[in-house]
Design a binder for these strands. Structure first.
Lengths: 109, 109
DNA sequence: ACGATACTTAAGTATCCGCTTGACAATAGG
DNA sequence: CCTATTGTCAAGCGGATACTTAAGTATCGT
């Protein structure tokens, strides 16, 4: 599997979980520590750390540890993978709609 | 849970599976029947139908049955839910970067 | 009418995933 | 130093999920 494809997998899989999206929403407002992330989510810190590992490997989040606190922040570049994938699909079906009428069926075979 | 939030859930969950994304990629090129979708995926038609149900409930795909063949096509509007969610996050962290320097940490508490 | 095609539905299975618990490590603060 | 805080790691549990198989329905072509 090509490297880029594997990354698309990781990104969409990461965004597929509601808790991880809640983390992303939180981090979009401000960087914050792992334990502070956990509090409003009603799950243990251990669970949050597991989510953070997935988010970090997907490139959506970056974390840095200083002292005993791990500060988490959004990695904006990571999201362009998802936006690009959707964008590519969109350009495809828009191209089709240009060639043919929107509502005219053109089933294959 | 607000209706819109539930839909975001469905959309990202649907896109979280690689097989379903493969289906979306295929449908972006042209509408196609369920059994034709199955062939290159190396899974049974029954499995494809299950994926189609999820994709349809998420609003990403629309299917219409005429005679015995169910034709599947992309529902472009469905994708804007995902694009919008990402777009909202992006505008948030960009706003932060305007107020402060990009690299200046501002951890909460 | 009959067989083949295209899908549908239900049930079962095996794997994955999110989460907890509990034990541990490292740092901060009095 | 001693204790509280913050995070890490490993193991395990239960439920979700992606798939298969098998049996059924509806439609098409001859």
């Amino acid at each position: 599997m090509p490297r880029q494809k594997a990354n698309i997998d990781r990104v969409f899989h990461a965004l597929g979980d509601p808790t991880r999206r809640a983390i992303v929403e939180r981090l979009s407002e401000a960087p914050i520590s792992a334990s502070h992330l956990a509090t409003p989510l009603k799950i243990t810190v251990a669970a949050v750390v597991q989510h953070l590992q997935i988010l970090e490997k997907s490139g959506l989040v970056r974390t840095t540890k200083v002292g005993r606190v791990r500060t988490c922040r959004i990695e904006p570049k990571g999201f362009s993978v998802a936006e690009q994938w959707i964008g590519e699909r969109r350009s495809m079906w828009e191209k089709r709609f240009d060639r043919l009428g929107d509502f005219l069926a053109e089933p294959e075979e």
